[in-house]
């Protein structure tokens, strides 16, 4: 194992973590503010990727695609909030689970109908193609840009929540719905806005990741489940928890897949070590989640301590 390979894996882990953060941030806001569990958040990720790939292919411009993907996911989010989810805030979690599961089916099929049954591919924009020399290793520029992009969005989100009027309202909404209604804030519009914001973030993540993997129906749910792990670790409703959890999950998952097979290689046959190492590595983040549950059942940074 070389230092170069190691650095590359650490960066991959960071990149996965930051993309997970974009997914988890929206989910955790919606949990925190509206008390809603939204299984269809992965579908918004998928919508972002599809619209980005299609718009980029049509216009020949990656950046237009990125905007289209984010906007489409935000619009889809606002639409399902107004038509369906709004009716579920006062329902029990079982109804929310079933309705948002139904939304996954609907959105997946609509995507198949709209974009055809085959995966789409999104090219890395020319300005971000190629690799960059990090001294000991060459690393794809686009992946490095993803890390920068993720950090920038995280910073922007933090500023939005900590420093703006909208952020104050969101935080107030987490603490006391009646209070915020009494202050004259239009709570329905606020909910739609928060939901669209979360959906836009998911769509942005999908669009960005679309250039490094194939864009296909069903791409959202594995990421959604990872985002759940992130939120369980970080604590519901906490943006900070989502950030810490996402980075932990991203780095541990990536490093586990990289290191465990090599570790087992030291005391068993190579091919066997690869298989067993990979199988155990796939469980690592869930073991982490279990450990957090035992020590801190409400997550590392519970929003309502």
């Amino acid at each position: 194992m070389t230092a170069a390979l190691f650095l590359e894996q650490v960066l991959n882990g960071l990149q996965l973590g930051l993309m997970l953060f974009l997914m988890s941030a929206g989910l955790t806001l919606v949990f925190g503010v509206m008390g809603l569990i939204n299984l269809a958040h992965g579908s918004l990720y998928m919508i972002g990727a599809f619209f980005c790939a299609a718009a980029a292919a049509a216009s020949g411009n990656f950046w237009l695609g990125l905007i289209a993907g984010t906007a489409a996911a935000a619009a889809a989010g606002a639409l399902i909030e107004v038509t369906v989810l709004r009716r579920l805030y006062d329902r029990d979690h079982l109804d929310q689970v079933l309705a948002t599961f139904a939304l996954i089916l609907v959105l997946s099929e609509l995507t198949k109908i709209g974009f055809g049954p085959f995966p789409l591919f999104l090219d890395v924009p020319p300005i971000l193609s190629g690799t960059v020399n990090l001294g000991i290793a060459h690393y794809p520029l686009y992946r490095l840009a993803l890390i920068g992009f993720g950090l920038a969005v995280a910073l922007g989100l933090w500023l939005l929540i900590a420093r703006t009027r909208l952020g104050i309202r969101i935080r107030a909404g987490e603490n006391d719905r009646e209070m915020i209604a009494a202050l004259g804030v239009n709570i329905r519009a606020l909910y739609t806005l928060v939901f669209a914001l979360g959906a836009g973030l998911a769509g942005l993540a999908g669009a960005l990741v679309g250039a490094v993997q194939s864009v296909q129906v069903g791409m959202g749910e594995p990421v959604l489940i990872l985002a759940f792990v992130v939120i369980v670790i970080g604590g519901i409703g906490s943006i900070k928890g989502a950030m810490v959890g996402a980075l932990m999950v991203g780095v541990i998952d990536t490093m586990g897949r990289f290191l465990l097979p090599r570790l087992f290689g030291h005391f068993m046959e190579q091919s066997q070590a690869a298989g067993i190492g990979a199988a155990l590595a796939s469980m690592l983040i869930y073991v982490l989640m279990a450990a957090v549950l035992v020590i801190r059942p409400k997550g590392l940074f519970p929003a309502h301590a």
Binding site: I37, I225, F228, M289, A290, L293, V294, P297, K298
Partner: peptide, 14 residues
Amino acid sequence: RTSGIFFIMITLAF
């Protein structure tokens, strides 16, 4: 050890 939304997410994750 948890309930509600947490329980749903955790059973799904495991």
